[in-house]
Every structure is written in structure tokens, then in C-alpha cells.
Design a protein around this nucleic acid. Sequence first.
DNA 1: TTGACATATTCAATTTCTTGAGTATACCGT
DNA 2: ACGGTATACTCAAGAAATTGAATATGTCAA
Lengths: 182, 182
Amino acid sequence: MALKHTILAFLSRQSLSGYDVAKEFAEGFGSCFWKASQQQVYAELTKLEQQGKVAYEAIPQPGRLDKKIYSITEQGQQELLDWLTQPCEPSAIREDLGVMGLAGHLVSPQVVIREIERRRQLHLETLQQVKKLDEHFAKHRDSLELKDLYMHLIIRRGIRYQEEWVAWCDEALGAITQAVNR
Amino acid sequence: MALKHTILAFLSRQSLSGYDVAKEFAEGFGSCFWKASQQQVYAELTKLEQQGKVAYEAIPQPGRLDKKIYSITEQGQQELLDWLTQPCEPSAIREDLGVMGLAGHLVSPQVVIREIERRRQLHLETLQQVKKLDEHFAKHRDSLELKDLYMHLIIRRGIRYQEEWVAWCDEALGAITQAVNR
DNA sequence: TTGACATATTCAATTTCTTGAGTATACCGT
DNA sequence: ACGGTATACTCAAGAAATTGAATATGTCAA
């Protein structure tokens, strides 16, 4: 499971609180490549800490629980490095909308059309968000240092993914409309 | 979770043994939209059977465990219908390769390049497979009945998804090579 | 005839993920 | 002053997925 390694990767860039890591998953990286809930992040950080792969500095906060700033340790860095060096497999796709392809004929075409239109809209919105993440990188695309280039490329993947969804929705809507009016 | 509904959707097309359902996940549909292990499928079928959403007919087989042919029940059909009528969310993306975008700078560009080339190859192979699934549908694209059109569109999504990956790999390889030689 | 591959199902341990609640303060706008 | 949102972390139950093994036969090719 790569949640562990994704967290280590975040911390290899900069030290962060659990809250901040969770926010990355929810906003930036999450909309491109990986989603994880806050609880998952906190649980994983606790585990990594017990394994000595990350360490935290507790920042006392008046009147509430300490804020914990996590950093990656030598050991964590090593773990991440080992993982990066190994080949990784394409992740499994699990897409609810796919069920429509199997059983869509059980409902009216209008239901299918409505659902696809809804999806189109959603992906369009996510696309705007992801594009914003890329703005800075895209501007200097040809002079980025590797670290930033990789980040740019991964965001590009996110952009292309969302664009692809929108394009497929258009294709599907066109084909279904045509078939219904036939 | 849609595993349940995906199984119901398969069984709404035709009655199948657990083994056959699992094969669909591994081969056809699996490479497009959903992957599930054999154990998962068997476990889910048992649960669905207990809930009265599927029923099986046991086919005795000399010298080994009965083969069970599962069919969807009225109740299962209803469950599936209800689910299809509700809006569904885009599924979360969880892509190991994304970690490269965060921490790729920790390894040499050659490692990153090698990994992306490997991925390109994998997606190219899957693409060929998925295209085969579509052959029949693509030929009659403009005269498919809805049931088949939906299937075609879902396979099209799979095709586009794989093509998109290949295209991204090309973009990434180009950009990295250029940056390294700079 | 041996070994690989396909058919067909079951069990069980463990890890991961989801869902939902609980605690507590700060800041901003209306 | 109030509600909404953001910050910041914890706990726990239950569902889902992964990993790995066990059982047993049929078929096809080298």
C-alpha cells in the first residue's frame, strides 16, 4: 500500500502536521492521484512514528492538544527510496459508473444521460481546480528543475485525466442521443 | 461499495458461476473498470445469497464440490435498480506512480525514466486487450441496441483510459529527457 | 508422463478503509 | 452575538480488501 509511501514522500519535501498532510490529500494531490481521509492519515502517521520512520516535534498550544510537526527520519527516507526503486503496478480502476455499462438497459436512457451529464460537470469543475495547481509550473515549463518538473508532470496527469473524462462524456452523450432518436 | 452492484449487474445479464464472475473481473470488465479477486467474489456472492438478492442452483460434479450457478432474484434486481437510479461519485484515484511526482528527485532520472517506460509498455498491452473486447461492438457502432451501446461505451472508456496513459508517458518521457539534456 | 494451465470452491489471518462521533479553539463576516 | 468555516487531533466499530493456502479434477502439449 502506497498511502504510507505517499505520506513519506510529502514529508520528504517538508515537515508537516497531520492536519496539513490530510489537507494535501483532500485538495492538491488528492484531486490528482490519491485520496485519503484525515483519520487514515493520522492513523498512518502514528504507525510510521512507532516504526521510527517519522518523528514529530510537539508544539504546545494553549488550551488544546499539542500540534505535532512530523519529519521523515533516516529510516523513513530509506524505506521511501527502496520503494521508489522498485517497479510499481498500475492501480486498479474501480469506477461506479462502469456498472451502467453492464446494467444501464434496466433504467431509462434519461437516467443514464442525466448521470453522464452530472459527471461531465463534476470533472469539469475538478479540472479547473487541478489546472490552478499547475499554473505556476506551466508558466516555466521549459526551465523547471527536476523536482518541480516531476510535480508538474503529475499534475499534468491529473489534468489529462479530467479532460479525458469530459471528452468521454461528450462521446457517450452524443452516441446515446443519436441511438435514442433513431 | 459497488462490488456488490457490479456482481448483481453481471447476473442481470446472465446467470453465472462464481468462477465465471471472477473471470469477468479479471479479464473483460476488470481491465476496464473494476478489479476484484476470486475470494472477494465468492465472499460477496455468499453474502448476497444470504440476503436473498441472488440464488444459486447447485450443479453436482462427480468427485468435487458442487458448481453453483447464481442468478439474480427479484429483490436483487430491485436493489440494483435503486442503486442505478442514484447519482454516483467519481471514484478515488490511487496511483502509485504519483508518488514519483512528490519524491522522484530522490532517485536518479534514469530510474524515473525506466519506470515510465515500463508503464507505457504495460498500458500499451492492456490497450490491445481492451480493443479486442470492443471489436464486435465497434463494427456495428451505429446500429447497436442500447444494451450493447452502453457496453461499447464503457469499453471505449477503458480504451481511452489506456490511450491516455500512453500519451502521458510520452509527454513525460519527452519533458524529462529534455530537462536532463539541458 | 509430467508439468502447466484451466476449472471450481473454501477458509482464515491480517491489513486497510470507511463512517461517524467527540473535543476544543480561533477567526471572519453579518 | 451568532453561525460558519478553519485549525488540530483522537477514538472506535465495522466493512472491505489483500494475502496466502488448501483441495481436487480435466485437458493439452512437450
